[in-house]
């Protein structure tokens, strides 16, 4: 699914040149759950941004589903982000002026989907994270864990095959974090490829592979569990039972 070879990223400002990533090579297969850890400033977000087509890279090659993404224009990148990739952010990034329904609806609108289909999908998604009854509420009326579940619903509503999460539990207490983690695991079990950046080692250890980054380079890749893609999709009830 994701194939990076010798990817380098250099940030240039007037005074300094920061090498955020150097000869970064990583393959992620369809259906994997990969966690990324490393000290602050080592380049985790940079990697995730490049993987998710939010940023371009300075050197090397990156193939997403076999396609060289350096050839894509801004519109095509936006389209891919919309259809293929889901994002979960550390600080949730919900639109504060929109209620939960409208928030989850955002990516579908950019896809130009019919209203009736959007409504059905959004309701179903909110239901699966256990927040359907609060769809008219504003994000500010929810707890952090609930907000992140809305953000996960938004990331998944378009049925992306690739989910990128940048410290999704970073703003949550450990109990709530564990709930969000279980939710992500279930999403992964239903077939979605996940790359998750985290500072929490215990969470990092739950994935199949853990990539450790140091100073923009891969320090180690730990194989943690057997590769296993579940045969049965997860039921809605199981998803909402967590977090």
């Amino acid at each position: 699914m994701l194939k990076m070879k010798d990817v380098g990223k250099v940030y240039r400002t007037e005074l300094v040149e920061t090498r955020a990533l150097t000869s970064f090579s990583l393959d992620v297969d369809e259906g994997e759950f990969v966690t990324v850890t490393g000290p602050s400033g080592c380049g985790k977000t940079t990697f995730l941004n490049i993987a998710g087509l939010l940023e371009t890279y300075s050197s090397g090659t990156y193939l997403l589903d076999g396609q060289d993404v350096s050839e894509l224009g801004d519109r095509q990148r936006a389209r891919l982000r919309n259809r293929k990739i889901g994002f979960i952010f550390q600080s949730f990034n919900l639109m504060p002026d929109l209620n939960l329904f409208d928030n989850v609806d955002v990516p579908l609108r950019y896809r130009g989907m019919r209203a009736s289909e959007r409504r059905q999908r959004v309701d179903q998604m909110l239901d699966s994270v256990g927040l359907l009854s609060r769809k008219k509420h504003l994000p500010s009326q929810l707890s952090g864990g609930q907000q992140q579940r809305v953000a996960i619903a938004r990331a998944l509503v378009g049925e992306p095959r690739f989910l990128l999460a940048d410290e999704p539990t970073g703003n949550l207490d450990s109990h709530t974090a564990a709930g969000v983690m279980e939710l992500l695991e279930q999403v992964n079990e239903s077939g979605t490829t996940i790359i998750m950046v985290t500072h929490d080692d215990s969470l990092a250890q739950r994935a199949r592979r853990n990539v450790k980054i140091l100073d923009g380079r891969i320090q180690s890749i730990d194989q943690l569990a057997d590769s296993r893609i579940p045969a049965t999709p997860v039921s809605d009830r199981a998803l909402s039972a967590n977090a």
């Binding site: 939010l54 801004d74 919309n82 994002f87 990516p107 950019y110 896809r111 378009g158």
Partner: peptide, 16 residues
């Protein structure tokens, strides 16, 4: 600004 960036991340084109 962050909302707009998020919209872009979620797939909004510049035109949108």
């Amino acid at each position: 600004r962050r909302q707009i960036g998020t919209r872009r991340a979620l797939g909004a084109t510049q035109g949108q």
